[in-house]
């Protein structure tokens, strides 16, 4: 096993352990049960499960990681489609989206066919969805329904699949180490979420997007993104980047992640729900958890590919 990966995992689980101890002490200190602390502990527990699953998949190799991301896309798509409440005319095209297009997309990523994996959903998927919907013969809201199915595929499958695609990049001088770039992306993006939450809860005063997400503040945004970028910069040794490149990449990942959360908030507002689901206790649904990866992964992937491989 890659010695750097070992250290990375050790640090990760050490931090989780510290978080658990803090959560436990807070709960002991507060005799009357406190909703914030309970939510915090639920989140920490969920983090353990998510980190264990993710680390295990990465350690078992790229195929397992792909399987994990396929499952994540499947669950995200399920939440998304539930929210858009499809009509009868979408049934067959949705079957294609779940059981044909999603597996093929991850298969293409897995065999490393870069060109095809990049155009498969935007071209073939997005051509086939309107055709299949037209064949179903239901014209009520046809355009809106078809656009929603296309968008569901782009967001829940296509964009997400860029994260595991990092494993198949060929970077000179960085052979068989790509798992660490995926870790870099996921850790920076999730740290950014956590730190934005922490900064926002402690210092947050001025809402940044009151119409979309009243909980998000300018203080949380600036503090969270800058501190998470510093975390990313400090991790530069495990990446093929220099320290300032790692810092810039982190900044970009954090900003895109923030926008991802904002876009997903807009969707939830539109549909009048608080969370996409209740899949992960304390975190809402799968989409609530990966919204920031969805928007940062494609950009990060293409920049790394362009400059480093």
């Amino acid at each position: 096993m890659d010695p750097q990966l070992k250290i990375l995992l050790a640090v990760l689980f050490l931090l989780l352990g510290i978080a658990s101890v803090i959560g436990w002490v807070l709960e002991k200190r507060n005799q009357q049960s406190n909703a914030v602390i309970r939510n915090l502990n639920a989140r920490i527990k969920a983090w353990w499960v998510m980190c264990l699953f993710f680390s295990l998949a990465v350690l078992l190799g790229p195929k397992m990681t792909l399987a994990l991301f396929t499952l994540m896309s499947f669950l995200a798509l399920r939440e998304f489609v539930t929210l858009i409440a499809p009509g009868r005319g979408d049934h067959r095209s949705l079957f294609w989206a779940f059981f044909v297009i999603t597996p093929i997309q991850y298969y293409l990523i897995g065999i490393g066919w870069y060109g095809m994996s990049m155009i498969f959903i935007p071209v073939y998927g997005c051509l086939w969805m309107p055709i299949r919907n037209a064949l179903a013969g239901d014209t009520e809201n046809y355009m809106a329904r078809t656009a929603l199915v296309q968008w569901a595929l782009m967001v829940c499958v296509y964009f997400v699949s860029h994260a595991p695609a990092l494993l198949f990049l060929k970077i000179p001088g960085y052979v068989d180490q790509n798992a660490k770039i995926l870790f870099f992306l996921v850790i920076v993006v999730q740290m950014s979420d956590v730190l934005q939450y922490v900064w926002g809860k402690t210092l947050g005063k001025h809402p940044i997007a009151p119409a979309l997400s009243p909980g998000k503040t300018i203080e949380g945004f600036v503090g969270g993104i800058l501190s998470a970028s510093l975390v990313g910069m400090a991790m530069y040794r495990i990446t093929p980047f220099s320290w300032w490149q790692a810092g810039l990449f982190s900044l970009l990942i954090c900003i895109m992640g923030f926008f991802g959360g904002l876009v997903m908030s807009a969707i939830k507002r539109d549909r009048g729900v608080k969370d996409f689901g209740s899949f992960i206790e304390g975190h809402g649904g799968m989409l609530d958890r990966i919204d920031s990866i969805i928007f940062s992964a494609p950009l990060f992937f293409h920049l790394v590919r362009f400059y480093f491989s």
Binding site: V81, T82, P86, R92, L94, F95, F98
Partner: peptide, 12 residues
């Protein structure tokens, strides 16, 4: 699994 369909689509 609506009436008349054979294949299911996942939804919550």
């Amino acid at each position: 699994l609506p009436k008349g369909e054979v294949l299911p689509v996942p939804l919550i």
